[in-house]
Write a protein that binds this DNA or RNA. Sequence first.
DNA 1: TGTTTATAAGTTACCGGTAACGTTAAAAAT
DNA 2: ATTTTTAACGTTACCGGTAACTTATAAACA
Lengths: 327, 327
Amino acid sequence: MAEVAKAAGVSKMTASRVLRDVSGFSEETRDKVMREVERLGYVPNRIAAAFGSEQTSTIIGVSVPFLSSAIFGSVLDSINGALAKFGYQTMIGAHENSAETEEVWIKNILSWRPAGLILSCHSHSATTRELLKAHGIPVVEIWNLNTSPIDMSVGFNHFDCGYEMGEYMLGRGHKRIGYVGADAETPGLGALRRKGFVSALKNASVELTSEEILNDKSGFYAGFYATENLLNRSGVLDAIYYQDDNMAIGGIFYCQSRGISVPEDVGIAGWGSMEAASILPKRLTTTVVSTQALGKTAADALIARVRGEPQEDLVITPTRLAPGNTV
Amino acid sequence: MAEVAKAAGVSKMTASRVLRDVSGFSEETRDKVMREVERLGYVPNRIAAAFGSEQTSTIIGVSVPFLSSAIFGSVLDSINGALAKFGYQTMIGAHENSAETEEVWIKNILSWRPAGLILSCHSHSATTRELLKAHGIPVVEIWNLNTSPIDMSVGFNHFDCGYEMGEYMLGRGHKRIGYVGADAETPGLGALRRKGFVSALKNASVELTSEEILNDKSGFYAGFYATENLLNRSGVLDAIYYQDDNMAIGGIFYCQSRGISVPEDVGIAGWGSMEAASILPKRLTTTVVSTQALGKTAADALIARVRGEPQEDLVITPTRLAPGNTV
DNA sequence: TGTTTATAAGTTACCGGTAACGTTAAAAAT
DNA sequence: ATTTTTAACGTTACCGGTAACTTATAAACA
């Protein structure tokens, strides 16, 4: 910048002012400086800027369970787009549903003095909570609505999603009901939906007949395979609730391959309105969620807090049970 | 750090040495310093570190078309994991298959003085190429093997993938052949596979009978819908090559919904060995690719270059045509 | 014993910006 | 004509580490 300033015949400080577009320079000076910036191909050094102004950087840390998850990918896209628009850079982390991995990542990212963090879908270690509180950095926890957040929480109410689906299935007259999930060792929020689901059944004095929770990651084949296990083990079921749509689709395919009709022989419901469901011959009964809305809301909330604007601590992102033709 | 040093009764410099684990201190001193680090909850300031050591930062920029794409998500996971292991932070960007968006992102990330960049799946603007060459920063271009890369290239040979599939289809006796793609306005590398495919047909004096390239993003429903358009327009086809597996699956479902048998009435092939194909009743004919291998290879290549270790400029990630039961 | 060598520190200057404050000259108010 | 205000700059110090150098101490050696 010193070079640019010298070439433009002004002081470093004036060049800095022009580049940051703060007040204190004339139009004429701006032109002179910008011309030299262009000519010399000057690329500002944000490291020095972040360092010089005792402020935090324009980095925002975003952590998700896996980057390969389609549904979180779409949340990430939405967050990243919203943040980029306001001049923030996204630093990502994949915590793999482990509080330790998350803690390591958080320690790392805090050393970059980020302006804020967006954490998803995991309960944090004690150290993590302390660290974040001590730094007083804006944090949005997303995915599940957390009623006692570190700072802010934007998310779906997974328990209610499950509860609602439980009531719906009972309402359709089902009695022998199963559940299919994944990630047994590192439970995500599917576990919370299951809890809500089971709770709805309990209220009607119905027990979960059987369940199959794999150790694998969720996916089409996991759903296929788990359904096979479940049905082999428990015999006839009226309906099965799946951790998510992809697993439910796998279940539908298993049934199809064995000549089991859906929903006549067994009802199937998922969660998450995932894209794959769009090609099924029957519309999948599921809970519709907007990952776009979630991501944007979370990013906006974080930016508001960073800028010191008023912002609710809790924002629920609505979900809707969409009855299809599979239950 | 000054506080820590003072508390430990050593100089700032010694504390710095301990924290970076470079030589020049005793075990006793390390213990003293580390104890105070723990006690005071010191989190190092990497911004100051990157600034102080005229070096580049430990940030690595990674740009992909979309974060919501399942296949790139898996590449990202693999890259991020490999980079994190070596103490690098990933800054992501989504270029949405636009050279301008990419350019804006690159200018932004360069202001963070990253140690290196991983760019995917897009030809760059002239300004971008100049900027990167001028900065002399290590760059790996991934996804497609680029024979004249800015710096390094790690990828699949998309043209050959298409060519191979073209030959395979001809070998199965198909003559009236169609193509289905997406992203017409912002073509990715599906366009290159199509080119290879068409080229194989041409070599056997076969013209592409018909094609349907949507403006939408690729996906199950896009494949479903595009197949409907294609078949309505061109009547009977022997086989269809799809931009990727997800679209091919959509195509299979369209056929199923209309009572068209695969592969008896029409053959269907995709690309990318995507997870969804695992639940199909028939194994999908496709090209198997390893996104894991690609990501890890790219990250390793970049780190090698950053560290000044010897590293090939071009690394091809092998692909394999996997004949299934759909062609 | 004196000299060399290795190890463990401390000192100083500096990285490239920005905050805070000081200066100047022109415009506005009295 | 003088004072006050304001916009447009310039100066200086500083952010929190690290590189490069210097110094102190102890061990190894001729």
